[in-house]
Write a protein that binds this DNA or RNA. Structure first.
Lengths: 171, 171
DNA sequence: TCGCTTCTGCAAATCATTTGCAATAAGGAT
DNA sequence: ATCCTTATTGCAAATGATTTGCAGAAGCGA
């Protein structure tokens, strides 16, 4: 899949953006999925799962611990680390380490996307460009390689007086 | 520059690759540049500069220390860290942290490029795609942002029986 | 050569993350 | 509801990469 693209095709549009997943319908919840993978559903895991599901801001581990501790003050940071790693291992979440920061977490959606990081606020915006995806595969092929993964992060600042299209409220 | 591209232009080619810089003529040496920036040229700095200039394999800090220590066994790891940071601060080198590894170093060439990492060997191949550069700027713009930086890394494995074009020896 | 700084080596400190271990708690079986 | 086995937790210590405080060493302009 995606292997036999025609590198000389004329792309109808340069990029196709999609909505961030907090605007998309929720799928199964993390806690249930955790159980389905044969793991015990402990109180801590339930809380961490809830925190991650409720978060739409790509929080880092410390922040997830902070939010979890607000519900159960006894929860240990190492439990958060262990639980998040376990969620990642069974594919329920993804972690991304942006430039010089801690790992940040998002619930897996199954749909691949890349990230734009607002350097003024740290806010993360998800996007997807099939054109870029194709170019990456093609570049690897030209260099004699088969693409197995990639990392694309855009660091940017807001254009003054120009609200982000995906955030703009109708009025 | 690069600001007013036409996103609907038909690109003559999908990507333009360039040769890795070890195939390009050397520019001024790091040691001299260090002095020109008002820093003292110590024996350790000269050695580290030589090691970095001679390296064309994106070594990490430990490896640079290893190579430097082969010349002067007394050189401290912290000196390597401090010197590399100083070189980076004045723009003589660039460091990149690829997935889950230590920071790797390359001499700055002034020409922007991205990286393909051979996941079987860790080898790094530099490439540049103006098409991707343009798309990135355009995507950021559509999201209401002005691109200030980016990170693009391709992780890939060699296609068997297919030598990398830029490495293929004439015969 | 002198003297003023900048540097270096060493060890200790940070920062993010992982891990050993004894105590605790899931959850299937009774 | 109670037991029992085994996974999981909290805590503290360990790790790995990188940074930093400090006293002694070494550039380099005078």
């Amino acid at each position: 899949m995606g292997e036999n693209v025609n590198p000389h095709a004329h792309f109808a549009s340069i990029c196709e953006l999609h909505l961030p997943d907090h605007l998309m319908p929720e799928t199964a919840n993390l806690a249930d999925l955790c159980r389905k993978h044969g793991r015990r559903l402990t109180g801590q895991r339930r809380i961490i799962a809830d925190v991650v599901s409720a978060a739409h801001d790509h929080p880092d581990v410390i922040e997830i611990h902070r939010r979890a501790a607000a519900i159960d003050p006894g929860i240990a940071l190492s439990t958060v680390y262990r639980t998040l790693r376990m969620f990642a291992d069974i594919g329920l979440i993804e972690t991304h380490t942006f430039e010089g920061g801690r790992a940040r977490v998002e619930q897996a959606t199954g749909e691949h996307h890349d990230h734009l990081i607002d350097i003024t606020t740290g806010k993360v915006i998800e996007f997807r460009s099939d054109a870029i995806e194709r170019l990456q595969t093609e570049i690897a092929r030209r260099l004699g390689y088969r693409l197995t993964g990639h990392r694309l992060e855009l660091y940017a600042e807001p254009i003054p007086g120009r609200a982000s299209p995906v955030r703009r409220k109708a009025r």
